[in-house]
Amino acid sequence: MKTLTKNLTYFAVFFFLGAIVFRYGLSHFLENRSYNLVWIIAAIYFIFNFLIGWFFGKRDYESLPLYDVGFRFHFATYFLFNIVSVLWFSLGFHSNFESIRIVYVIALFWGIGLLIHLIFYLIVRKNSIYGLNKEEIFE
């Protein structure tokens, strides 16, 4: 099954850059105790991710309707966000008010969510051929 599609790659690139900007903004505003701006950058980050997910997800489905209930995009999001976060701490870019423990806790709980999503994905995959919904191949 084709997993890494062109639109998923574009999404991953935008998401990766967005995660770096978010991490930078978060650490910077926390360091300067600008707590109101932390909320603002978190909201902007959420909207940005929603928009790129919606845009590239829609284009991806229109291009080739892979029947994965959004799992590929979810996995890419999980993987990239946590990689950026861990690297951010490893390279010492974080503020004094951030702890890597939070990153691990987020990865753990989000990972449980991702696992549930994987189970759903494996269930619906039974109704597909090469990742396409059987009922949609010859519609």
């Binding site: 084709k2 229109e62 291009s63 309707p65």
Partner: peptide, 10 residues
């Protein structure tokens, strides 16, 4: 769109 699907399934 249809041809892409047919190509995908071989």
């Amino acid at each position: 769109r249809n041809l892409r699907k047919y190509q995908h399934v071989g």
